[in-house]
Each structure stands twice: as structure tokens, then as C-alpha cells.
């Protein structure tokens, strides 16, 4: 097993254009397996940018990233896709479920992308859905679910492939406090139960404080705010 689930060195990200904008500068980050990290920062500070780089959705201008030991800059597009599919789970601010598929099918989607889910996979996902309180909603379409239920489905979907790392970009940003707390508690519980590392971007200081570790992006730099002993 790799020592770090995420190891980023000297990351720089500059968005091109008429006025080049350096969003990230000299960012170094190491995330241990099973660690629950919160990233905070002002709007526009580059939190999503960082998450997209770690999630292999975007490439850094300079520096290297390794996810679960695999150097992203050394992989082809198809290998990156495979890596996202097998080792990373994504949760976005807007739930981003597929409207034409049921709750269960949505949760199974990363497995479908890979092929046909095994009965064991399917049983595990059903179990997760039952644990997040969606056992009775398996055949419902997303538009029949509440925002909180949709986001809980998305959490299960992120965990469906048993990834090493879950990247969550303001997953509670669109929910009321109660549902937000629910979803956060769920992620925390899953983190403890499965040993999956989480990187959670949030504006909510309370949630950040409840994480094991808290990072802040300031002026393009990543600053360690707090780390649980």
C-alpha cells in the first residue's frame, strides 16, 4: 500500500487567457489513508481547482500529484479515467444524479461504467443505501427524492467502488442545516467504517472543525490550520 493516498508536490495552477491567473502556488499536500480532511477558503480561492487536480479532472501547470501511488502526469487519458473509476469517489455540490436512472442504479453507476456489477457489489450498495435510510426508495427516480436524499445517494455512489479517496466539493452547500449535518455525519461514519480518505471542501466552519484535519487556501497557498494529534 502507498504511504499516502494523495501526495502533491510544488503544485502550481495558472489559468491562461488575456490575464493569466495564478490560482495555486507551491502547494504541497500529503493525505494519509483513511484521513478526513476539510479544506476551507474564500470563494474563488481555488478549492475546487485543487480538488479537480487531485481528482485527475484537470492537470496542474507545474508540480506532480500521485493518487494511491500512481503519478497522474504519467498516465494516459484512459488510464486516468480508470483511476477515477476505481480509486476515487466524487461528491459534488449539486447532487448530479442521472435523472433517467433509479436511486439504486445511480448508486451503482460507477460499477456499470466498469462493466456489470457482481451480485456481491450490488448487495453491498443496497446495504449502504439501507444504512443511509434509502432502503425503501431504491426504485425512485432522483426527482422523487428530497435534496438530502439525493445527496445521500451521491455519497453511496461515491463509495460504491470501494475507493481509496472521496473528493467532496461542498456537498452540503445546497442543503438546509439539518440535512447538511445528516450528510456530513454520514460521510464521517463511512470514513470511520471503511477507512476511505475524504477531502471535503466546505464553507461551513462547524463542519471543518469536526474534521480530523483542516486546511485553508490563502493567496494561492495551502496552509495547515489544524491537525488532530
Amino acid at each position: 500500500m502507498a504511504d499516502w493516498v494523495v501526495e502533491a508536490r510544488d503544485l502550481q495552477k495558472v489559468y491562461g487567457g488575456v490575464e493569466p491567473l495564478e490560482v495555486l502556488h507551491d502547494v504541497n499536500l500529503q493525505v494519509a489513508p483513511g484521513e478526513f480532511t476539510a479544506v476551507v477558503g474564500q470563494s474563488g480561492s481555488g478549492k475546487s481547482t485543487l480538488l479537480n487536480l487531485i481528482g485527475a479532472l484537470d492537470r496542474p501547470t507545474a508540480g506532480t500529484i500521485a493518487v494511491d501511488g500512481a503519478r497522474l502526469d504519467q498516465l494516459t487519458d484512459d488510464e486516468l479515467a480508470a483511476l477515477r473509476n476505481t480509486r476515487i469517489g466524487f461528491i459534488f455540490q449539486y447532487h448530479h444524479l442521472l435523472d433517467d436512472f433509479t436511486c439504486l442504479e445511480n448508486a451503482l453507476m460507477p460499477l456499470y461504467i466498469r462493466g456489470t456489477p457482481t451480485p456481491a457489489d450490488e448487495a453491498r450498495v443496497r446495504g449502504l443505501l439501507a444504512r443511509v435510510g434509502l432502503g425503501g426508495r431504491l426504485d425512485h427516480r432522483p426527482n422523487a427524492l428530497s435534496g438530502g436524499e439525493q445527496q445521500r445517494t451521491a455519497v453511496v455512489r461515491a463509495l460504491a467502488v470501494q475507493p481509496k479517496l472521496v473528493l467532496a466539493d461542498e456537498p452540503t452547500g445546497n442543503l438546509d442545516t439539518h440535512s447538511g449535518n445528516d450528510v456530513f455525519a454520514l460521510m464521517r461514519e463511512m470514513n470511520r467504517a471503511s477507512g476511505v480518505a475524504f477531502i471535503l471542501v466546505t464553507h461551513d466552519e462547524r463542519l471543518a472543525a469536526a474534521a480530523e484535519r483542516e486546511l485553508r487556501i490563502e493567496d494561492g497557498h495551502l496552509v495547515e490550520v489544524r491537525r488532530a494529534g
Partner: peptide, 16 residues
């Protein structure tokens, strides 16, 4: 396009 983007983020290849 939203759906395609999310599928690709989850590891669907362009070919798929």
C-alpha cells in the same frame, strides 16, 4: 451534457 460530464468524472472513457 451535465450527465455526460458526471459520467466522465466517474471514469467513463470518451470512447464509451
Amino acid at each position: 451534457s451535465r450527465e455526460i460530464g458526471i459520467l466522465k468524472a466517474m471514469g467513463a472513457r470518451g470512447q464509451q
